[in-house]
Write a protein that binds this DNA or RNA. Structure first.
Length: 820
DNA sequence: TTAGGCTCCATTTTT
DNA sequence: TGGAGCCTAA
């Protein structure tokens, strides 16, 4: 067994300084203790690639950590030969910690991180081969916001009609191609029509601009690493030699590029003739196709479905025993997910007993729903549960507001996970943009962002002139700024302002060059740029919290400067090996890769006002909830158009992804599950009327205890409406789906509630039976032609082309549509 | 060039 | 409902 080989090419990484006094590792018995058959088998497995199909709550994290410990202490694997890839930085930190508990400090040397972090480390190390001269020390990593700014510039330069080519779709298109590892030229050659040509042109220029800015976006991090491996087999072999054990968590969420990365390391060697060829690393992937909820960002469920074909001698182990939830909850989850087609059957079971029934509630409005949730939480906490045991899930971040309002009113401590994250706040991004352009002046996006922030009299006109100079002289934007006097048509006033700016930046850069600590640089920047002052002098009350946030950012930087190894996603192995001396660039890299809500010391929210030991109620989106569990879970907003989201209605794959999301939500609950919906929900101003989510109908009827149903709702709601909210329900959109345009709204003369009840029990109006090609008329959109029809009865949804108004997807039960 | 008022627009999910 | 971008006046 070659597990104990030294690490060729990584001589710097030895375990020599590792404390030899570490207690003896755990025994085999200890490592297998408490595991069931399949779990133990996965831990002990050796040899061929292994797929562990891990149902929700089946203890996969435990299996992963035990296996890593097993590799180290039983199979004598060098910890440095282990590469474990997790989905979030948080998961990585936890895993590392838990392995360290088992085998001691040796665990530090493992690579445990996300795909992105791993790739950054490889790129840094191998930067010389990539042809970006300065890549090694100071490239910027562009996140979605930066990408958006850049693509806007690009589309501008290409004179693309901004209405037709919006940043979002263009970026999405580019991202898809990057994930498929397709270069711009390749894509351009395949373009079939004008639109695709424009997209390809945008891709090409975008990529060029990235390069000029010494920047990589998130997709590049993976793509460039794979390309590096493909172009330089000798580098790939180095890593193949180093990483003898590769473990991938959440495999169902990998995209094609990530799959290729894994394949480079663990596939059969490509050059069969190569004498040096290295046996592929031992691979274990863990995942659950039913929990794949990231297709929208390129995750390819086929990666896990086809694992056995991709790795021919692979073995599969199924973990179906659930240690988390009651049988009631599991049965519900199984039934719902059973509606998806083409999945591999898997039945979770539990010996925890049936437990309580699922509680259902139909609310009048979203406020009513929030009240219900709040009062139930009160009952639960009275009954001995802690606030921290409770979570409220919703589909979109915007839905958190009603809950926050009621929790504030009732004094229930809570925290919202996700939402506008710390690193996405404007002031934080501004500050980071300053730092980024100091480290990497070619970073045009950052530079432009802060050029006139705070206002220093360098407006659009001036930027335009500089840009022109840059293009004419073929120099970077920063170089052009330094030569502002040569810019054609630049006002003297602007020129003076620019010179002042350049002087300030130059001075700050010398600080960075001198190796000043990140926190010191940051504080100086905030001071010298006048940014802090402009906030302090502002009378906008929001700016007060902005100042506080900047203080927080300085604190983060200080913490990093003092102890770069501590904190989230620390990768001490490089630090230990002296490969990294933490400076401003490393701080920025860390921040770019860790833009994750729960990593942020948002302690002010968490600690002070929380009653000791009680914790706080957690509010989050279903996506954020993946991987977590709570004794009591509220699944809210179960309405067609909200969850499943309106954009997924009528598209089978997307709808199935929504269903997997429901599955994820349900299986987060340990003991108690609540499902609720609101008949009327205010979305962007006007109240909208949503039918019950189809997922509610998929729950086994005898498992749900309906506290309040639509029938109750119809019976009781009118007085509620009159006393509760009087005025606001006069005019309502009659359409639950489609675009709730302000124009032509249809009045519900009676309470919306009654209309819904009537529509549900016995349609108030005949539902028109439509076929593709039928001509129809709509109260708002006028004449249209039916494109397609899905679903039946009161669930049927028609896609109708209204000419200039575009195509709409309408739920026929509500849509004011008549067949002609 | 900027500030302030205005309209209009939009709402998935994120490493 | 709110935020972001546009236009106008100074």
């Amino acid at each position: 067994m070659n597990d104990a080989l030294p690490l060729p090419g990584f001589e710097g990484l030895t375990t020599a300084e590792e404390p030899r006094t570490t207690r003896r590792g755990p025994t085999a018995e200890e490592l297998l203790e408490g595991l069931n058959g399949p779990q133990a088998e996965a831990v002990r497995h050796a040899g061929p690639p292994l797929l562990v199909v891990a149902g929700a709550g089946s203890g996969k994290t435990r299996v992963l950590t035990r296996r890593i410990a097993w590799l180290i202490s039983e199979r004598k694997a060098h910890p440095g030969s282990i590469l474990a890839i997790t989905f979030t930085n948080k998961a990585a930190a936890e895993m590392k910690e838990r392995v360290a508990e088992l085998v001691g400090g040796r665990a530090k040397i493992m690579w445990v991180s996300t795909f992105h972090s791993s790739c950054v480390r490889i790129l840094r190390k191998e930067a010389d081969h990539l042809g970006y001269e300065r890549l090694k020390s100071n490239f910027s990593i562009y996140d979605a916001q930066d990408q958006k700014r850049l693509i806007t510039l690009v589309c501008n330069d290409l004179d693309l009609d901004p209405r037709r080519y919006q940043p979002g779709p263009v970026l999405h298109w580019i991202s898809n191609h990057k994930n498929e590892l397709r270069e711009p030229d390749e894509v351009a050659a395949d373009a079939r029509n004008g639109i695709e040509e424009s997209y390809a042109a945008a891709y090409k220029l975008y990529q060029r601009r990235l390069r000029e800015a010494n920047a990589l976006d998130f997709d590049d991090l993976i793509m460039e690493t794979v390309r590096l491996f493909q172009l330089h087999p000798e580098i790939r072999e180095t890593y193949r030699r180093r990483f003898r054990h590769v473990l991938v968590d959440e495999y169902q969420d990998t995209n094609h590029a990530q799959y290729s990365f894994i394949h480079q390391l663990c596939g059969q060697s490509l050059e069969e003739t190569d004498e040096d060829r290295v046996e592929p690393a031992e691979l274990m992937v863990v995942g659950d196709a039913d929990q794949s909820i990231y297709a929208f960002r390129g995750a390819d469920i086929r990666n896990i479905m086809d694992f056995e074909q991709d790795f021919p001698d692979a073995r599969t182990i199924m973990l179906e025993q659930n240690y988390r939830s009651t049988q009631t909850i599991l049965t519900a989850a199984n039934t719902v997910i059973g509606n998806n087609q083409g999945r591999k059957e898997k039945r979770l079971w539990s010996d925890a007993g049936d437990g309580d029934k699922i509680v259902g509630y139909v609310a009048d409005t979203e406020h009513d729903e929030a009240r219900f949730v709040s009062s139930e939480i009160d009952k639960l906490t009275d009954g001995g549960l802690k606030a921290g045991d409770v979570a409220v899930f919703y589909r979109t971040n915007a839905q958190s507001r009603v809950f926050e309002e009621i929790f504030i009113r009732t004094g229930m401590p809570y925290k919202v996970v996700g939402g506008v994250r710390f690193y996405e706040r404007r002031e934080v991004r501004d500050a980071l943009a300053y730092l980024r352009m100091l480290v990497n002046p070619d970073d045009q996006v950052s530079l432009r962002r802060i050029l006139n922030t705070p206002k220093r009299g360098i407006g659009d006109r001036a930027v335009e002139c500089i840009n022109e100079l840059a293009n004419r002289e073929q120099v970077t934007f920063w170089e052009a700024l330094q030569r502002a006097s040569e810019a054609p048509g630049l006002a003297t006033r602007s020129q003076t302002n620019i010179e002042g700016f350049v002087a300030m930046v130059t001075e700050l850069q010398s600080m960075v060059a001198a190796g000043e600590r990140p926190d010191v640089v940051l504080e100086t920047v905030l001071d010298r740029s006048g940014y802090l002052k402009s906030l302090e002098e502002s009378d906008d009350p929001q700016d007060e919290t902005r100042v506080e946030n900047l203080g927080e950012l300085v604190a983060v930087a200080r913490e990093f400067a003092e102890d770069p190894v501590a904190g989230p996603s620390a990768d001490p192995s490089d630090v230990d090996a002296g490969l990294v001396e933490p400076g401003l660039g490393d701080f920025l890299e860390r921040v770019a890769l860790v833009a994750d809500a729960d990593q942020i010391p948002d302690a002010p929210d968490d600690d002070p006002d929380a009653p000791p030991d009680q914790g706080v109620v957690t509010l989050m989106t279903l996506h954020t909830a993946k991987g977590l569990e709570f004794p009591a879970v509220f699944l809210t907003g179960l309405e067609d158009g909200v969850f499943p989201h309106s954009r997924s209605l009528g598209d089978r794959p997307e709808l199935e992804e929504e269903r997997r999301l429901a599955y994820v939500g349900i299986t987060r609950a340990r003991q108690r599950l609540y499902v609720s919906r609101a008949v009327v929900r205010s979305a962007w101003g006007a109240p909208a009327h949503n039918p019950a989510s189809r997922f509610l109908g998929e729950l086994p009827i005898d498992l749900v205890d309906w506290r309040r149903t639509e029938a109750d709702q119809a019976r009781w709601s009118r007085p509620t409406f009159a006393s509760d909210s009087g005025s606001s329900y006069g005019a309502q959109s009659g359409r639950g789906l489609g675009t709730p345009n302000a124009a032509g709204r249809r009045n519900f003369t009676s309470a919306a509630a009654r209309a819904d009840a009537a529509a549900k029990a016995k349609p108030a109006r005949e539902i028109p039976v439509l076929e593709p090609g039928d001509r129809v008329t709509h109260d708002t959109f006028g004449l249209g032609t039916v494109v397609s029809v899905e679903g039946q009865g009161d669930k049927s949804v028609a896609k109708i082309d209204f000419g200039s108004d575009g195509e709409k997807r309408l739920l026929l039960r509500y849509a004011p549509v008549e067949k002609l």
